[in-house]
């Protein structure tokens, strides 16, 4: 296991290094002067030149990359021309909000997809299965940002039943910052009122973000279980008279779950990327919305930092998924 982890981490370092070179070069060679764009068409040439110097834009691209990499290793991604603050400070402010949203969506994605998949498989070809399959089509077909708009308009505008914008309501004091995740921090502080409020706020963006993947995984799990049900070994264990629950848990769920975990891993990692528009719609002050703004304003330092962070998270999730798959399937040996 340690050998496997070491190898994957080493691979990861090279992948991240490659990613950093790629995003750095792409963001620098697209046309337009970032300094001019940051300061506007009317800023004086002196001010633009000063910013160019500050951003090392007058240097060659390899030299710029070395400056950037030296800073990035220290956690210094330079200054955002959009927010006019250090990018690291922006990330510190915005990343926890996205992490919280992604963790919540991930929790929904894993628990609800397993539950629905099991339910649909258990009642295969019944009305329960039909409803879940029908809902799954809708969930998969509707992009998360469209789902976000639908949920926002139904629960926020028409029903006015739930707070839908931002992370907390008026009059609710933010708990002391421990992890940056408001729900967790409020639990640590024993402040259940804030926890409840934060939960209400995160519910709709969380659902909007998770729904597509959730439904897809439920379908895969259902199909996988249905497929394994026809296998001979299941007939054998049935023949031994084992209880249905035990057959489902021990002999069906585990092998059927492996293809789901692979897709789930990718979907969990993709939540960060999909959060762009969901965060915008729900006024969620996260890193994805920050990244979107950075791209629209050609904020080079912010773009590079956001993509790098999403890349690292993507990689980490994939390593974790590999470990889970290996744990589930003894035929896969880590490090072999």
């Amino acid at each position: 296991m340690l050998k496997f982890l070491g190898r994957r981490l080493l691979q990861g370092v090279f992948v991240i290094l490659g990613l950093s070179i790629l995003i750095f070069v792409i963001s620098r060679i697209i046309p337009g002067d970032p300094a001019r764009m940051a300061l506007g068409p009317r800023a004086t040439e002196e001010a633009v030149e000063q910013l160019r110097e500050e951003m090392h834009l007058n240097d060659s691209i390899p030299k710029q990359y070395v400056f950037w990499l030296q800073g990035a290793v220290r956690g210094d991604f330079g200054r955002s021309v959009n927010t006019k603050r250090d990018v690291s400070e922006d990330i510190k402010d915005f990343l926890p909000a996205t992490i919280e949203l992604v963790l919540f969506s991930g929790f929904l994605l894993v628990t609800v997809s397993i539950f629905l998949g099991l339910l649909a498989a258990r009642y295969k070809d019944s009305w329960v299965d039909t409803i879940i399959r029908f809902t799954a089509y809708i969930g998969i077909a509707i992009p998360s940002f469209v789902m976000a708009i639908i949920l926002l308009l139904i629960f926020g505008l028409v029903l006015q039943a739930i707070p839908v914008l931002g992370r907390l309501s008026s009059g609710i004091t933010k708990p002391p910052n421990v992890t940056g995740l408001i729900m967790l921090d409020s639990l640590i502080a024993g402040d259940f009122k804030t926890f409840w409020n934060a939960l209400q706020h995160i519910l709709l963006p969380g659902i909007a973000l998770a729904l597509g993947g959730l439904m897809q995984e439920a379908r895969i799990l259902r199909a996988s279980i249905a497929d394994n049900m026809t296998k001979e070994y299941i007939s054998v264990v049935k023949g031994f008279g084992l209880p249905k629950g035990l057959i489902m848990r021990k002999y069906l769920f585990k092998p059927s779950f492996i293809p789901v975990v692979s897709v789930m891993g990718l979907d969990l990692a993709a939540l960060m990327g999909n959060a762009f528009l969901v965060e915008r719609i729900f006024n969620w002050p996260g890193i994805s919305r920050y990244g979107l703004n950075a791209m629209l304003t050609k904020d080079l330092n912010a773009i590079s930092a956001v993509i790098l962070i999403i890349g690292v998270i993507f990689l980490a999730v994939n390593i974790i998924v590999d470990i889970i798959i290996a744990a589930l399937d003894p035929r896969i040996r880590l490090g072999d």
């Binding site: 629960f155 926020g156 029903l159 006015q160 039943a161 739930i162 707070p163 839908v164 914008l165 931002g166 992370r167 907390l168 309501s169 008026s170 009059g171 609710i172 409840w196 409020n197 939960l199 209400q200 706020h201 519910l203 006024n283």
Partner: peptide
Amino acid sequence: LLFVACGGGGETTPNGQTGPSDDPAVE
């Protein structure tokens, strides 16, 4: 899910309405 969605009746906004709000410091 329904309880979370409908429970609590939303927050009281500065203007006395119920519904969504993320206003941090308004009476």
